[in-house]
Design a binder for these strands. Structure first.
Lengths: 349, 349
DNA sequence: AAGAGTTTTGTATCCGGTTACACCTTTTTT
DNA sequence: AAAAAAGGTGTAACCGGATACAAAACTCTT
């Protein structure tokens, strides 16, 4: 079967109509070197007449720059990822880059697949968030593009880290460890010393970090986290519900609850209310992430917010430094402070 | 400044190492025509050895297919758009397509800008949702790519429509008019005849359609919608709050409330509860969209769900029909039925 | 073993841009 | 006014694939 060529108008057509060479048209398009004003105008006129836009494929083929970057994340329906993505796109726009979005649904095969796909599409860089890079102990296979010694595609990881080959990629993270300290400081400041931790999942980075930080903070503030007050489940609303139900089954009860994230916190709050407890009167509940849901529960959730804007803009600027082979140096692993957003779910004891 | 070429390994390198022509390597890559098994294996071996992946830019330049499609929408942080996007991507994957995501933040300039950008990037098709196409009366400028008589980029609009140039694009929509009929039938079935409508904004398609449908349905079911029970605001949680506050200021009160969407419904419910009313005992509240929030409020929201999966898969299949120049015929404007999801926010009178 | 038919492979061109380098003008310098 | 410098433009090669067409290498007849 013959390929049907949709010969759109090309630079050669423009050149012919202007009686100039393609080089001149190209110069006008890119403002790359001096063109006599008179010629410039003549060419521009024809460009406008046909509303001619250069083919970015052809351009990219020669320049080795596509001005496209790829973002790989688990699920864009998750509000956290959506917020980060929005900031990434906003930042990319400033660098003239457009972004591919790939959802892996936490399927490792899809992670690998998309990594390859985007590389074939010659993206200038790759941003990874969540997924395998959030697994504390997994040896990451899909980042074998980082192993390539020659001209690897620049990779930046947001809120995750790589144990192997990390020298080939930069990371930008929210400092969840420190954030947990803030959380504990805030709650102890309100008089709480009996604190539970609900939700999350062992082996996932943000859970492991938060738990470790919580234990360390407890030691600093001189109280203990009872084992039976730690109920892991997952990162969902339902996870919050089930963890809270387990907690309520204990005879000893805390006065404050730290949830792995806002979705779980919402589940926790609603479970309390359904069972006749009041929030924050009977339990103070603290969330993480500052998701959309945090502002829409009753009571609304006091939470630790990610520095979304910075997360996106720094990641994109890192990518561009790497693209332009500027050394990022030792600052290539940045940790950003999270900040508390006070709402209604926590109360002085 | 000299351009630095990152000469990655190319098809010519592979060909040389195998002592065959580039044509043969290309044939192996694409399984396009018979290659002697022995040769095939030899070539494949070298391909694997270098983990060689063909450059999609070069391929696309010749084939005039990028296997990329673009999605333009207002804001991915909006759960409705995120859900649709996820389905689009899933469907695109089956066609071997990867997708660019562009957020316009409802800025018309950005809509135009991205439309142009994506066209320059030679996307095989464009999917539009929300934004200007959701404005009932605006004359759409940015779809002037549809005006091109020769080889226009295929465009499919999801939940929107175009007044001009619509013959050049297909549409896939949720039938919100019929959905409102379902809503009214459901509420009247529960004995409600005093129904309010809160949220939304005049001039936006889904508001205008729903209002018109509500009035028509009221007529069919023989009741009237009081003017003072229609409080427009917007599509947000806060919009629900403010509309509900206005409604509560009226001395005459309805028994059921239809919200423009679930976010507004959440605001409405929380406002009721904050003011000492009970939902669904004092007010039944019905939402639209089946957003994430609908399952996480207390009470959870009974709502009309979009056919997300179909919305995405049909849109993508339309795009591909257009790409392959298959005539879509008169079915190119499809309207899909929404379905009610019963939760806890509505109750028999 | 020559000729016909089939299978496999190679050559050269194309896709649509960018740019090094050469060449031709024009302006400036002396 | 000639030489040097600067300015403007064109030619041709290149980026890395796909494929039409030609040619070579087989296989099968008779």
């Amino acid at each position: 079967m013959d390929v049907i060529r949709k010969n759109k108008i090309s630079i050669r057509d423009i050149a012919k109509e202007c009686n100039v060479s393609v080089a001149t048209v190209s110069r006008v398009l890119n403002n790359s070197s001096a063109v006599k004003e008179q010629t410039r105008l003549r060419v521009q006129k024809v460009i406008d007449k046909y509303n001619y836009k250069p083919n970015e494929l052809a351009r990219g083929l020669y320049t080795q720059r596509t001005k496209s970057i790829g973002v790989i994340l688990p699920e864009i329906t998750n509000h956290f990822f959506a917020k980060v993505f929005l900031e990434i796109e906003r930042a990319a726009l400033e660098y003239g880059q457009t972004v591919f979005l790939c959802n892996t649904l936490s399927d490792y095969k899809l992670e690998d697949f998309y990594t390859e796909r985007l590389t074939e599409k010659q993206v200038d860089g790759l941003l990874l968030l969540g997924g395998r890079v959030n697994q504390t102990k997994t040896n990451i296979q899909y980042v074998n593009l980082l192993k390539r010694e020659v001209f690897p595609t620049p990779v930046v990881i947001i809120n995750g880290k790589l144990d192997n080959y990390s020298e080939n990629c930069a990371t930008v993270s929210s400092d969840e460890y420190e954030a947990m300290y803030q959380a504990v400081q805030y709650l102890t400041g309100l008089g709480h010393r009996n604190i539970a931790f609900l939700g999350g999942k062992k082996g996932i980075m943000s859970t492991d970090i938060k738990l470790a930080a919580l234990k360390a903070a407890a030691k600093s503030y001189n109280f203990v986290i009872k084992k039976e007050w730690i109920k892991l489940s997952d990162y969902t609303y339902q996870g919050g519900v089930s963890a809270m139900n387990k907690l309520l089954a204990e005879k000893d009860k805390p006065t404050a609850i730290i949830a792995i994230n806002d979705e779980a916190a919402a589940g926790i709050i609603n479970t309390c209310i359904s069972k006749g407890y009041r929030v924050p009167d009977d339990f103070s509940v603290l969330g993480f992430d500052d998701s959309f849901i945090a502002a829409t529960t009753l009571p609304s959730i006091t939470t630790l917010s990610h520095p979304y804007k910075k997360l996106g803009s720094i990641a994109v600027s890192f990518i561009n430094d790497m693209i332009n082979e500027k050394p990022i140096g030792k600052d290539k692993n940045i940790s950003l402070r999270m900040s508390i957003v006070e709402r209604q779910s926590c109360k002085r004891l």
